[in-house]
C-alpha cells in the first residue's frame, strides 16, 4: 500500500503509522458532557466504504495526515495534511 503524502510524494506503507478515525473531534471543554468524551475516546463507527482516518508520516515529514480510504478496497481517494483540516475546521467553527 502506498500513500501520496502532500509533503513527500508517494511513499510506502512502512513509513506511516495508522491511528484511526479522523471524524471524531475532541470536545472543546473538559467540562463537556461525559457522553461527549466517551464518544470521542471510545466510540467508533466501522463503515464499509470511504473512511477518513489519521495516519502519521513518522519516517518522513512527521506530518499527521487525513487519509480517505475505502475500507472495502483500500483505494485511497484523498490525502491531506491534518493541520490544514484542523485549521479549516476551527475557522469554520469560529465564523
Amino acid at each position: 500500500m502506498r500513500l501520496n503524502c502532500p509533503c513527500c510524494g508517494p511513499r510506502g506503507l512502512e513509513e506511516f503509522t495508522y491511528r484511526g478515525d479522523a471524524t471524531v473531534r475532541r470536545p472543546e471543554s473538559p467540562t463537556a458532557p461525559a457522553q461527549d468524551w466517551v464518544d470521542y475516546v471510545y466510540l467508533r463507527d466501522n463503515p464499509a466504504g470511504p473512511h477518513r482516518e489519521l495516519w502519521y508520516h513518522g519516517a518522513g515529514c512527521r506530518s499527521w495526515l487525513v487519509v480517505t480510504r475505502d475500507t472495502r478496497t483500500h483505494a485511497i481517494s484523498d490525502v491531506v495534511r491534518a493541520v490544514d483540516v484542523a485549521r479549516a475546521d476551527k475557522e469554520g467553527a469560529g465564523s
Partner: peptide
C-alpha cells in the same frame, strides 16, 4: 505532533 497538528494547530 498529533496534539499540535490536529488538536491545537493555532
Amino acid at each position: 505532533e498529533l496534539c499540535h497538528q490536529w488538536l491545537w494547530p493555532e
